[in-house]
């Protein structure tokens, strides 16, 4: 039995009188690809925002367990940057790159929380800073190469083609050395070829043992990638299981198609 990396229990989020998330349980084990699916407005992105510290959940617990230890780290109440530091990195559904920075610099930003040069180091460019800077550049470039973005390294991020921007979002998140990578609709707006390439890319990243949790609407992609799938509707988890189980699950079919199905 593999160890859980992320454990979410009873996560609840209220906006005013509206319950966007209702006592949600979810877990991701090391090296797994898990998908979170559900109709529009089911609360998937809200879930991401809650576990990454952008929203503070009304109730529930979020724990992160590094694979090499058994100590659970609570993420509840942490700020987004602290969550990232602990090892949860995300991409955004509507691309949020740093438009006026180069592609390489976008990835270098991801290294921020793993490095420490500050005012003094920056001004006097000490040996330690120089070494650190060199390692930032090398690591970032290696990530770009791996994701097939090396040719764009010195371009401004907003000059990239759409598919490459999506990949850059992933590259940037990977640069933070996450224990768990969160992808928010990585295939949104992609054409079929790009989606196939993305499918390969995510599998490639996963081969290195990277745990991934993704939100996605493209069912083919979800079924091809996921080890397990969680299904949400109206802020609640309505099903979970392997792709094969989910495909046959009448509750899921009902949620998606709105039909009356005799269970």
């Amino acid at each position: 039995m593999k160890q859980s990396i992320l454990q979410v229990t009873g996560l609840t989020m209220d906006f005013g009188g509206i319950r966007a998330l209702n006592s949600l349980d979810l877990d991701v084990k090391s090296g797994e690809i898990v998908a979170l699916i559900g109709p529009n407005g089911a609360g998937k992105t809200t879930f991401f925002n809650c576990i990454t510290g952008i929203y503070t959940p009304t109730a529930g617990d979020i724990f992160l367990t590094p694979p090499d230890s058994s100590k659970k780290i609570s993420l509840k109440g942490l700020k987004p940057n602290q969550v990232t530091e602990k090892g949860l990195a995300r991409t955004f559904q509507n691309i949020r790159l740093f438009a006026k920075m180069t592609v390489l610099e976008n990835v270098m930003i991801g290294r921020h929380c793993r490095t420490k040069a500050f005012v003094f180091g920056a001004i006097f460019r000490t040996a330690a800073t120089r070494k650190e800077e060199k390692s930032i550049i090398e690591t970032s470039y290696a990530i770009l190469e791996k994701l097939g973005l090396a040719e764009f390294a010195n371009e401004f991020a907003d000059n990239l083609p759409y598919g490459a921007q999506r990949r850059l979002e992933i590259a940037r998140a990977l640069a933070t050395e996450p224990l768990l990578l969160l992808l928010d609709e990585p295939a949104a707006g992609m054409n079929p070829q790009e989606t196939i390439a993305l499918d390969k890319l995510i599998k490639k990243i996963s081969l290195d043992g990277q745990a991934i949790l993704l939100i996605e609407h493209d069912m083919q992609l979800v079924m091809s990638l996921s080890d397990r799938i969680f299904v949400m509707d109206y802020g609640k988890k309505i099903a979970q299981g392997t792709p094969a189980e989910i495909r046959e699950n009448p509750v899921v079919i009902k949620a998606y198609l709105g039909e009356e199905v005799d269970a």
């Binding site: 740093f98 920075m101 921020h112």
Partner: peptide
Amino acid sequence: RAWIALREDEIACQAMGI
């Protein structure tokens, strides 16, 4: 770099651990 990232997009910047 962190300053410029902050100028470009605060939320993404925080999500990158800054």
